Structures are given as structure tokens and as C-alpha cells.
Simulated scan of single mutants.
Amino acid sequence: MSIADAPELISGNQNLTAAQIADESFNFRIFSFDDRKVTGGQIAEAYGAHPITEFVVLHQLANLELEELRPTELADLKRGNRFFVIRGDGTHRFFVDGLSMVWPLKTLKGRYIKQLIAKDNADTELLLEREDQPDKVIDDDEDVRLAGDGVEKLKTRPAKASVTIIVEGTPHSWTKNKISYDEVVTLEVPNYAQHPEITYSVKYTNGPNNRPEGVLAKGETVRVKDGMIFSVSETGQS
């Protein structure tokens, strides 16, 4: 269960003694406590983190900011009922859309950063702000290094409305930031859906930074980039 689909217990619900706790995988589980105020130690114990000295507890506030919660420090579940318990001995600070965040690991994937600010959707792009270069678009599966010099600053924006992709030499305007195997094949073979017995090989080049080239298998999707090139070739009968 991710932040996006976890039950909202912060407001509008009388159950103010329940907490959602996850590790770095962002799979949340729900735990109940006897009181609305809990310590970092209680959160770690409920999650099974032993010894607590080897773990960092993070509390996500109602405004989505992340802060470290010490073992004896109290957190009011009314101010935010989401927590992370992650093995580590310190945190790295960063900002997303002006929100202050901390994280105990050296890197964090783009999709997880978007989840932290409740913008984990295909309509939102994540960018790493850079002073002497253009801001860098961070793909969902791309790691952002948090442990370098300085404090990383990221921001979001609506995904680019339209890009041009090339399929077998023909340019096509594409308005989504991902494309599936079926969608690529259909651009080249418009009646593809009427002939499911025919199989195709789909390859691409000039792709996103984390996957500049590769093979797109049936059932898969890939993030698109302006000028991305696809080849579609028939491989036979299924």
C-alpha cells in the first residue's frame, strides 16, 4: 500500500490512534496504538525494528513534510499518521516544491519522491534544480543522489503536453508521458487489435536517460521522450 492509496486517517475520521508505517519500499501497514501520541521508539517497536539504534524513524506531517522522530520524542497522530522506519544512522536533507524532507539513504527514486508529495501520477514531472545547467527531468525509476555536497532541491510541473516520437520513420504526436507496447504497434499497424495472432518485436533508441535504448515487451510501458525512435517488426504467428 503506497501513500497514494493508503487510507486517509489524518482528518475526517475518529480513528486517531492508527498509524501507517513503511520502510524504504513505501509499502504501508497499519498499526493501532493506545494513545494519540506515540514516541519514535513505539513506532519502531511496532514495526519490529531492533535494535532501535540502528534505525531512523521519520514522521510525515499533515503538510507532507518529513522530519526525523527521536526514540523518546512524541508525535501527535492528529498532525500526521504516516511514518517510515529505515535502517540508518543519519539523514540527508532535501526539498521538493519547497517542502522540507529528510531521508536516511543516499539515494531515492523519482517515483518515491513524487509519492511523498502525493503527486505520483503520469501527469506530473519531477525536476532536479541546477544552477549552471538546465533543470534535469527525473524519471520515475531514476535515483536522485541525496548524499552529495549541498542540499538538493526538486520541483514538479505538469508533464509536457505533447512530444514527437518516430515509429518506423513516421513522426507521431504523443500526449502522454508513457507509451505501451500495444500503443506503439498500433501506431505502425492500425488494425493490430484485429489480428492478435500476429506478434511483433518493438525496439527503441533515443529514450529517457535511465533507459536510452531497449526492447519493449508486450504488457510493458516506457517513458517517452521528444524524438524517441521506435522500430516495429513482425516476428510471426503467436
Rank of each mutant, 00 (worst) to 15 (best):
G207L: 01
S162N: 12
A147K: 08
G169Q: 05
T72P: 03
K153G: 00
I3Q: 10
A161I: 05
E142M: 12
Y192W: 09
F31C: 02
L127P: 00
Y192V: 04
T186Q: 12
A19W: 02
A217T: 08
E8Q: 13
Q14P: 04
L64V: 11
Y200D: 03
R36M: 09
D141P: 03
A122N: 07
D34V: 03
A122P: 05
G80T: 03
G214T: 04
A147R: 05
Y47L: 01
F26Y: 14
S162K: 13
V185N: 01
S162Y: 03
G148R: 08
E220H: 07
I117E: 02
I52K: 11
N13G: 08
N177R: 13
E24G: 08
D143S: 09
V189R: 13
H50G: 09
E54I: 00
E152H: 07
I229C: 00
N63F: 07
D76C: 08
L216S: 00
Q20W: 13
E168T: 08
R87M: 14
P190C: 07
G150M: 03
D35Q: 11
S231C: 00
A161G: 07
S201T: 09
E142Q: 15
D149N: 15
A49S: 08
M101F: 13
K178L: 11
Q42D: 11
L77D: 03
I86E: 02
V57M: 05
T186I: 04
A46P: 03
V151T: 15
P158C: 07
I113N: 04
I21W: 02
L128S: 08
Q194M: 10
K203D: 06
P196H: 01
A19V: 10
F94L: 11
Q194D: 12
N15R: 14
E125R: 09
K203V: 06
D23V: 01
V189P: 00
G148I: 06
K153C: 08
N121P: 00
P104E: 05
D34Y: 07
L16R: 13
M101N: 09
V85T: 06
M228V: 05
P7R: 10
